[in-house]
Design a protein around this nucleic acid. Structure first.
Lengths: 346, 346
DNA sequence: TCTGAAAATACAAACGTTTGCAAAAATAAC
DNA sequence: GTTATTTTTGCAAACGTTTGTATTTTCAGA
């Protein structure tokens, strides 16, 4: 049994109550046009609107103005540690400007991703922030030609079709490798993220580059790719990597979850961190300072990433062709999962 | 420079292209009314719609049907460990039924909370899931009399105005206390959550009840309230609690973050866990198995909570006055932060 | 008091759908 | 080949706004 609630009060209701035409109500209620109506009448309208409990119907308004004041945000996994702070940043920046956000979870499933995107477009979002782009299954061009501007975040599709807000992983991974080299490590491997994600791919490239610049020997087994950015996949990849590189003294993990997976792998192999093997994470996720040993990581400011993406999107939605990509600068965070190698190779 | 994108294709466009009236297009496109149009024509319409790249305009459709297929979800803090899995569950259950979710972050700020709620109502959400209710600043009645049904989640406002999906904290805290008692603890204190949140209040009551049932002595200092469910507030409250109860051998923390705050407090006081003091957490948040010592906790199924809330909301939106509250059953998780007291009191 | 301009308001057409109802077309019954 | 039915389609009115244009009111200035 649903209670048959009375129909919502519309501008027409307010108009008749205030004894004016409803178009006048519209103008009085909208701060931008309020000065077109005589102040005293405007006041009366505002008053009766309040009394009747009038609340504007965005659907109607959006239909007419072609602006929904809603933006869509798609993340590959809401429940991961990485995205909540990003979402918080986005929501914060957008709400201030009167936008609300529909959030969708692509769950790393292309079909679901498609459904989420169409759902958002049908709902006439004014803009889109995508943290879910993959390199192997790119967003069709048509989306980029749409009414709604798109901003990529965290990951990029490297096509240049949309501005991206990403971290300077080249630098970030460089910091980690340099740190390990400074400690005296020579036998460093990389437990990488999936190659079909820009984050995975870039960090692999960064690892190779840093190694060659710092004269760390590299072979074709030095990089082992985890199938996803998860603790479980990290563990599996780490075990494989250690089997292939028995003399490893340090591991650069592609992100914190993978690093925690490496912890699990070491525990299983009865190796200790950092005494036997040093490990660096990436992202400096919440609570990695509480694990044992506290994880040395590379901090990226997730909230800032969200804020920045929102800012760019706002600019685009405002019709400004806001410039290029944004590269956020990461920061090294030293904790206790790294130490000089047991048998320095000199 | 915004590219003046061509106007989106509407039903009228499809209609003229297919040589029929646009109302026929409407019927052909809607699976529910498709059998009103001759199969062969329907096929032609579907075809041309696909060719022209037609996409329905939800705004117009919603305006007409008074159903937006959007629901609002308000959480007090997106970035906490607790809510992302809940959101994932909600999104999962709702998307399957064609709903998308606007998520709002009340940030524990009443004014912001109000803005988020009005924003959602203006956008004509079909339903609302609130995880943000507080006991001291209740949602005004008018919201509950609205078009959009409301479901409370995780917290309740104890007014019975809306169905709630919560955990059986009575049982959960009981499990923790019983465990400590079984280990031989007699001097147990509770570092509680804020009393103005139902979760804080209920767990305090649960603690008292369990203690009295299990003959654990209780005095007016046995419960110290943290000002929020955070690590920082937990630490402060814990220090205060230990000062007032120097002989404490075990702490029941109101949630995992507070428990981690207690870890911090013990570290500061040079006490060790679990040797000097045992600690139990609550929620079994991700990664509390990785902290040192791994935290004994009470698991609540967060995703299930989201799924359940979504299910109830779907039922209500469908006009079914779905029954009463849902009490989810928690589960004890033994790890290494609890051990028998050093000096068993017998 | 009247004229002309300016200010304030009302009118009405959109926006893109859905849907009751009327009209037309197809089919059945005779 | 009619008529009565049933399908199928078209028509037009909503849904609640915004906004260009027309109309009215107000108020100078003479």
């Amino acid at each position: 049994m649903t209670i048959a609630s009375k129909p919502p009060v519309t501008m027409k209701d307010v108009a008749t109550a205030a004894g004016v035409h409803y178009s006048t109500v519209s103008r009085a209620l909208n701060p931008a046009t309020r000065d077109l109506v005589k102040p005293q009448i405007a006041a009366r309208i505002l008053q009766t609107a309040r009394e009747l409990g009038y609340r504007t119907n965005s659907l109607a308004s959006s239909l007419r103005t072609k602006r929904s004041r809603v933006v869509g945000v798609v993340v590959p996994d809401i429940a991961s540690l990485l995205f909540p702070p990003i979402l918080e940043g986005i929501e914060h920046a957008l709400l201030k400007e009167g936008y609300m956000t529909i959030v969708g979870n692509s769950a790393n499933d292309p079909e679901r991703h498609r459904r989420v995107l169409t759902g958002m477009m049908e709902r006439q979002v004014d803009g889109l922030i995508l943290a879910s782009t993959t390199l192997n299954d790119p967003i069709p061009d048509e989306w980029f030609e749409n009414r709604a501007p798109i901003v990529l975040m965290n990951r990029t599709d490297e096509s240049g079709r949309a501005p991206a807000v990403v971290n300077d992983d080249m630098r970030g991974i460089g910091l980690a490798v340099r740190h390990l080299v400074d400690l005296g490590h020579k036998r460093i491997i990389h437990v990488a993220g999936p190659n079909f994600l820009s984050t995975g791919a870039v960090r692999q490239r960064a690892f190779k580059l840093a190694c060659s610049e710092l004269s760390v020997p590299l072979n074709r087994h030095s990089i082992v790719e985890a199938t996803s950015f998860t603790r479980e996949a990290g563990k599996i990849a780490c075990i494989e990597a250690l089997a292939k590189n028995p003399q490893t003294t340090a591991i650069v993990a592609a992100n914190d979850l993978i690093a925690l997976g490496c912890y699990d792998a070491l525990a299983e192999k009865k190796l200790s961190c950092p005494e036997d093997i040093s490990i660096t994470g990436y992202n400096d996720s919440p609570f990695v300072d509480l694990v044992r040993p506290p994880l040395t990581s590379v901090r990226v400011d997730q909230r800032e990433m969200g804020l920045e993406a929102a800012r760019i999107l706002l600019a685009r939605m405002g019709g400004h062709h806001a410039g290029a990509d944004i590269l956020l600068r990461p920061e090294f965070v030293l904790r206790q999962s790294t130490t000089p190698p047991r048998t320095p190779s000199h």
